[in-house]
């Protein structure tokens, strides 16, 4: 190892570790709370390490409070909403960066995407409720998948614009000249090149939809339809907060997201070539 490299490591590793420590400190507190017995938690103390670690809260949350069912609901809704957003959003972003539209349709489209995201959810909830009722749409999962597009679709479209723009048109023209149709060129040539963008959007979409609260609260009326955030909200009652289950539930809920991020980051971080810059 060259001295330069050693020096770089000596500066960067402590920085990285510090960042991770700041990010993890409240989560560490959460973890320790989830493992403490209620008695020890109420006893207080600054100690992060529980004296008698117990998994009772996890057991309670998973098997007595129906979290397995909530997990299933959330997983179906969040992944379907993400898939829908990535599909429609990437097509739109591609079209917007590649073609000219009549009547400034493109600018209006992007502006409208912003409008969608700027409306506060508490404003949309009542009219959407009326709209879905009038359309005789009763399946809560379908309703939530559609409603979540309010968060995810504008994000996806705007994010992917930047990534599609960076792709040289020559790459695509070559595919078209070789006889691919435009959709084939899109699927075989363009999509692999925007993978970092798609990966990042997928992470954002799934995180937002996984943790969405307002629409889930309004549209899921019976426990069978609850998503995880609603399940967790039941631990905060008017009289007291059930800290153990709350902490355990929060950690259980973020584990699949962590797994997804770890899985997807291989598309986000390309592992090759020169990266010595900065």
């Amino acid at each position: 190892m060259s001295t330069r490299r050693v020096l770089k490591n000596a500066i960067l590793y402590p920085l990285l570790l510090m960042v991770v420590a700041v990010a993890l400190l409240p989560i560490g507190w959460l973890l320790s709370t989830s493992l403490k017995t209620p008695l020890e938690f109420l006893g207080g103390g600054i100690s992060l390490i529980p004296r008698q670690p117990t998994l009772a809260h996890y057991q309670e949350v998973l098997f007595e409070r129906g979290f397995l069912r909530f997990l299933g609901n959330t997983a179906v809704v969040a992944s379907a909403a993400t898939a829908l957003s990535l599909w429609t959003g990437s097509l739109a972003a591609y079209a917007l960066t590649r073609f000219r539209f009549p009547c400034k349709l493109d600018a209006i489209f992007l502006l409208w995407a912003l409008v969608v995201r700027t409306i506060p959810p508490i404003v949309l909830v009542v009219p959407l409720f009326i709209l879905f009722r009038e359309l005789r749409l009763t399946n809560v999962r379908v309703i939530l998948i559609l409603a979540y597009q309010i968060y995810t679709l504008p994000l996806t479209v705007w994010m992917l614009l930047g990534f599609f723009r960076e792709i040289p048109r020559e790459v695509e023209e070559a595919a078209l000249i070789d006889g691919a149709s435009r959709l084939q060129a899109l699927a075989r040539v363009v999509y692999p090149l925007v993978m970092p963008g798609l990966a990042a959007s997928a992470i954002f979409c799934i995180i937002t939809t996984w943790n969405e609260f307002t629409y889930a609260l309004i549209f899921a009326r019976v426990p069978a339809d609850f998503t995880i955030p609603i399940g967790i909200a039941t631990f905060i009652t008017e009289y007291r907060t059930l800290w153990g289950p709350l902490a355990a539930g929060g950690l259980i809920s973020s584990l699949p997201l962590l797994g997804f991020t770890v899985f997807v980051q291989r598309y986000l971080l390309r592992g090759f070539a020169l990266r010595g810059v900065f």
Binding site: K8, N9, L12, Y13, L16, L17, V19, V20, A23, L24, P26, I27, L30, I207, W210, N211, F213, I228, P229, I232, A233, I236, L246, A247, G249, G250, S253, S254, L257, L258, T261, V262, Q265, L269, G271, R275, G276, F278
Partner: peptide, 25 residues
């Protein structure tokens, strides 16, 4: 995080962990 360092693939998910918790929690 753009610098290629050993262990980056472990530290990155940990650094973005706060985003994954439900806002309630």
């Amino acid at each position: 995080f753009n610098v290629r360092l050993r262990g980056r693939r472990i530290l990155l998910p940990l650094a973005v962990l706060p985003m994954m918790l439900p806002t309630m929690v």
